[in-house]
Nucleic acid binder design. Structure first.
Length: 726
DNA sequence: ACATTGGACTCAGAAATTTTAAA
DNA sequence: ATTTAAAATTTCTGAGTCCAATG
C-alpha cells in the first residue's frame, strides 16, 4: 500500500485554482431559492399528515407494554426484554436469515453472548466505574453550586451499578428503533443581549444606534472580523443582503454600503469580554461549570427503552453567520435563530412530553419510533433538516456501528470475487459497464467516496468517484519510471484536496483514455454512471453492499495488516504505540484524512527537540556517574558502593527509557503533521481489531482509546478476545 | 421506468474548552 | 505552589451517503 498513496506536501492547501473553473455558472440563485423553500415547506406540511397514519398504526402495535419503564437501574432485567428475546429466537429459527438479520449483515455467531471470565469482568467494571463517575448521570440531586465539581472529583461513587450490555441482547426488527422514549426537549440558544450603550457602531464615520434586530446580526459579523473570510466578496455580499433584511426601513435606507460600516468597537468589546472570561476567579468559573453540569443533567439524557442514555447535541445551534467549508456560495448568510415554533419533538405517546418554554408552542409533537431522533428542525441555509440524536455510546448508535463492521467483514469474504468481476467488466462491450467497473476499481483501490451529484450553486464544488470530471485526472503514459500513471487532483468532502499519483493497470488506463476522449475538462468522467446505478449493481453482488462499505473494509483490513507487519511482542509499550499510530496513519492516508498543521507545530517540535537534547545530556551525566561509581566499587569492595553502582545503573536505564520515549514521540508527531487520525479511528476501524491487538500485546486499552472512545466502543472492548480477526 | 427530492443517518475537520505538564 | 503553555479532549455543525417516496 505504500507506493499507491504518495501524497504531496501541497495537498493541504485547498488550492484556490480548483475553485475557479466551475464558479461562473451560478451567480444569482437567490430568487429561485426562496421559491424552493416555500415549496419545500408546503410539501413537508403535506407529508406530515400522510406519515402520521403510518405512525399511528405502528405505534399502537409497539407502544403498549412500556408502562413499567423508568426503572432506570441499568442491570435490571425486565420481563419485556426476555419476552422479546423469545420472540426473536423463533423468528430466527425460521431457517434462512430472518429479514432483518440479513439486512443488518450480522453474523449469527456474533450474537452469542460472550462468556467472560468473572474476574476479568469485575476488573473491568471497577475500572469503568472510576473513570465514569463524573459523566455518570447523577440522580437529580440539587447540588449547591460550587460544591458539585469538587466532590464529584474526589470520593469515588461506589454504586456497583453495572453497565448495560446492550450487545448481549436481541435487537429490534422491522425498523422499530425504540418502544419508549422520553426526554426534556432541546436547550435553546441564550437570548440576545443588547450591547452596552458605550459600544458604538459607525457608518461612514458617524455614530449610529442600531435597532436590536440589526444590532444582533451586526455582532455576528463583528465577532468574525479577524477571520479572513469576512474579507471575501461572496461572504460580504451574502451577509449584507441578509443583514439588510433585519434592518428597520430607516436603517435600510441609510446603510447601503458594507464598506462604510465600522464594527471595530463591537469587535473590541467582544475581545475584552473573552479576556474577562479568562480572567474570572476560580469561584466564578466553578459556578459556571456547575450550571453547565446542571443543564447537562436535566437535558443531556433521555430514557429510551428502560435505559437512561446520553444525548449528543441537546443544544440548539445558536444564530450566526453561515460559514460552509471551502468555497461555499452561501458563506456569510444569516443562520436564523431557532424558536420553539420551529421544533418538532419526537417521543413516545406514553411519555411525559417535553414542555415548550412558557408562552410558546412546538411546531409538532410526533411519535415515530421508526426513527432515532428526539428533536428536529429545518435549517434556513440549505433547507435541510437538523436533528438531535443520541451519543455514540448509546445502544442505538452502537448497534448500527457494530452492524457496519459486520457488513465490511462480509465484504471481506467475497471481495475476491467482486474484484475478479470488475476486472472482467473492464473488457465489456458496454460503456456503462466499463465505467462502472473502473469507478469501482477506484473506490476499492483508492478508497474514494461514492460521489453523489450535488445541486450546483448550492454548495462548494467538490466531487467523489462517480462525480469526477475530466479535469480532475491527468493521464501519464509514463511517469517517474512507472507506466500508466493516473494523477488525481480534486476537492473531496469538506473541500479537502485529494492529490495522488497512481500507477494503474494498462486496461484501466486505456479505458480512462476512452472515457476522456472528445470531452471538455468540465465534463463528467463517468457520464454513464451515478451512485445509484453503482449501488444497485453492488447490491446484486452482495446483499447490503454499497460503495462506502469498501472504505470501511479497506480501512479496517489495512489496520489489521499493518499491525501485524509493524508490531512485535518484544517491543516495549511506547514502541508498540508508535507502531499502532503508524498503522492508524496508513489508514488515514488511504482515506485522505487531513488536517491543517497545528498553528504551533514548528514550535512544539522545537520544544521537543530541546527536551531530547537535555535528556541526552542527562544521560551522559548519568553514565559518567555510573562509571565513577563502578570504579569506586572496585576499589572499596563494600556493600554500600555496590549498591551505589546498582542504583546508578538503574538511573541510566531509566533515563535511556525516557529518552527513547521522547524520540518516539518526536517521530510520531513529525509523521503526523498534517494527518488526522481521529476520523478513521472513530469511524472506519473496527474497534475489535484494536482491542484484540491490545490484549495480544499487553498494551493497556487506555493507551489507544481515551475515555469517550472507550465508551463508544464498549461493545468491542467487552466482546473482542485477543484472537479476534476482522 | 426512471429521475428527483426529502429524510435520516454517518462522517468530517476546526474551534473551543479542559486537562496536564512545564516553567 | 502558581502560572503558563501545550496537549488532549470535547463540542460544534457542515458535508457526505444512501434509501425510499414521489411525480
Amino acid at each position: 500500500m505504500s507506493g499507491d498513496h504518495s501524497h504531496n506536501d501541497s495537498q493541504i492547501d485547498s488550492g484556490s485554482r480548483h475553485n475557479d473553473s466551475h464558479k461562473h455558472k451560478d451567480k444569482y440563485k437567490d430568487k429561485e431559492h426562496k421559491h424552493k423553500d416555500h415549496k419545500k415547506d408546503k410539501e413537508r406540511e403535506k407529508s406530515k399528515y400522510s406519515n402520521s397514519e403510518h405512525r399511528d398504526s405502528s405505534d399502537k402495535k409497539h407502544r403498549d407494554k412500556d408502562k413499567e419503564r423508568l426503572k432506570l437501574k441499568d442491570g435490571s432485567s425486565d420481563k419485556q426484554k426476555d419476552k422479546h428475546k423469545e420472540k426473536k429466537k423463533e423468528e430466527r429459527s425460521f431457517d434462512g436469515k430472518p429479514k432483518k438479520e440479513k439486512e443488518n449483515g450480522f453474523e449469527s455467531a456474533e450474537f452469542k453472548p460472550k462468556k467472560i471470565k468473572t474476574e476479568e469482568r469485575e476488573k473491568k467494571a471497577k475500572k469503568r466505574e472510576q473513570e465514569e463517575e463524573d459523566i455518570k448521570p447523577k440522580k437529580k440531586t440539587k447540588v449547591k453550586k460550587g460544591e458539585a465539581v469538587t466532590d464529584g472529583k474526589k470520593k469515588a461513587k461506589k454504586e456497583p451499578e453495572e453497565k448495560w450490555k446492550w450487545w448481549e441482547e436481541e435487537r429490534y426488527t422491522d425498523g422499530v428503533k425504540w418502544k419508549f422514549l422520553e426526554h426534556k426537549g432541546p436547550v435553546f440558544a441564550p437570548p440576545y443581549e443588547p450591547l452596552p450603550s458605550n459600544v458604538k457602531f459607525y457608518y461612514d464615520g458617524k455614530h449610529m444606534k442600531l435597532s436590536p434586530g440589526a444590532e444582533e446580526v451586526a455582532t455576528f459579523f463583528a465577532k468574525m472580523l479577524d477571520h479572513e473570510y469576512t474579507t471575501k466578496d461572496v461572504f460580504r455580499k451574502n451577509f449584507f443582503k441578509d443583514w439588510r433584511k433585519e434592518m428597520t426601513s430607516e436603517e435600510k435606507s441609510k446603510l447601503t454600503d458594507l464598506n462604510k460600516c465600522d464594527f471595530s468597537e463591537m469587535s473590541e468589546y467582544f475581545k475584552a469580554q473573552s479576556e474577562a472570561r479568562k480572567a474570572m476567579t476560580k469561584e466564578e468559573k466553578l459556578k459556571i461549570k456547575a450550571e453547565n453540569e446542571r443543564i447537562l443533567q436535566e437535558y443531556g439524557f433521555c430514557v429510551m427503552d428502560n435505559h437512561k442514555e446520553r444525548i449528543a447535541n441537546f443544544r440548539i445551534e445558536p444564530p450566526g453567520l453561515f460559514r460552509g467549508r471551502g468555497d461555499h456560495p452561501k458563506m456569510g448568510m444569516l443562520k436564523r435563530r431557532i424558536r420553539p415554533e420551529d421544533i418538532i419533538i419526537n417521543c413516545s405517546k406514553d411519555s411525559n412530553h417535553p414542555k415548550p418554554p412558557p408562552g410558546t408552542k412546538w411546531k409538532e409533537v410526533r411519535h415515530d419510533n421508526k426513527v432515532t431522533w428526539l428533536v428536529s428542525w429545518t435549517e434556513n441555509i440549505q433547507g435541510s433538516i437538523k436533528y438531535i440524536m443520541l451519543n455514540p455510546s448509546s445502544r442505538i448508535k452502537g448497534e448500527k456501528d457494530w452492524q457496519k463492521y459486520e457488513m465490511a467483514r462480509r465484504l471481506k469474504k467475497c471481495v475476491d470475487r467482486i474484484r475478479a468481476q470488475y476486472r472482467e467488466d473492464w473488457k465489456s462491450k458496454e460503456m456503462r459497464i466499463r465505467q462502472r467497473a473502473v469507478a469501482l476499481y477506484f473506490i476499492d483501490k483508492l478508497a474514494l467516496r461514492a460521489g453523489n451529484e450535488k445541486e450546483e450553486g448550492e454548495t462548494a464544488d467538490t466531487v467523489g468517484c462517480c462525480s469526477l470530471r475530466v479535469e480532475h485526472l491527468t493521464l501519464h503514459q509514463e511517469m517517474d519510471g512507472q507506466e500508466y500513471v493516473v494523477e488525481f487532483d480534486f476537492l473531496g468532502k469538506d473541500s479537502i484536496r485529494y492529490y495522488n499519483k497512481v500507477p494503474v493497470e494498462k486496461r484501466v488506463f486505456k479505458n480512462l483514455q476512452l472515457f476522456m476522449e472528445d470531452k471538455e475538462p468540465e465534463d463528467d468522467l463517468f457520464d454513464r454512471l451515478n451512485t445509484s446505478i453503482l449501488n444497485k449493481h453492488l447490491q446484486e453482488l452482495m446483499d447490503g453492499l454499497t460503495a462506502k462499505v469498501f472504505r470501511t473494509y479497506n480501512a479496517s483490513i489495512t489496520l489489521q495488516q499493518q499491525l501485524n507487519e509493524l508490531t512485535t511482542s518484544e517491543d516495549n509499550v511506547p514502541a508498540k504505540i508508535l507502531s499502532y499510530n503508524r498503522a492508524n496513519r496508513a489508514v488515514a492516508v488511504l482515506c485522505n484524512h487531513q488536517r491543517a498543521p497545528p498553528k504551533t507545530f514548528e514550535k512544539s517540535m522545537q520544544n521537543l527537540q530541546t527536551k531530547i537534547d537535555a535528556k541526552k545530556e542527562q544521560l551522559a551525566d548519568a553514565k559518567r556517574e555510573l562509571k565513577s561509581a563502578k570504579a569506586d566499587a572496585k576499589v572499596r569492595r563494600d556493600e554500600k558502593s555496590k549498591k551505589a553502582v546498582e542504583s546508578k545503573k538503574k538511573a541510566v536505564q531509566r533515563i535511556e527509557e525516557q529518552l527513547m520515549k521522547l524520540e518516539v514521540q518526536a517521530t510520531d508527531r513529525e509523521e503526523n503533521k498534517q494527518i488526522a487520525l481521529g476520523t478513521s479511528k472513530l469511524n472506519y476501524l473496527d474497534p475489535r481489531i484494536s482491542v484484540a491487538w491490545c490484549k495480544k500485546l499487553g498494551v493497556p486499552i487506555e493507551k489507544i482509546y481515551n475515555k469517550t472512545q472507550r465508551e463508544k466502543f464498549a461493545w468491542a472492548i467487552d466482546m473482542a478476545e485477543k484472537d479476534y480477526e476482522f
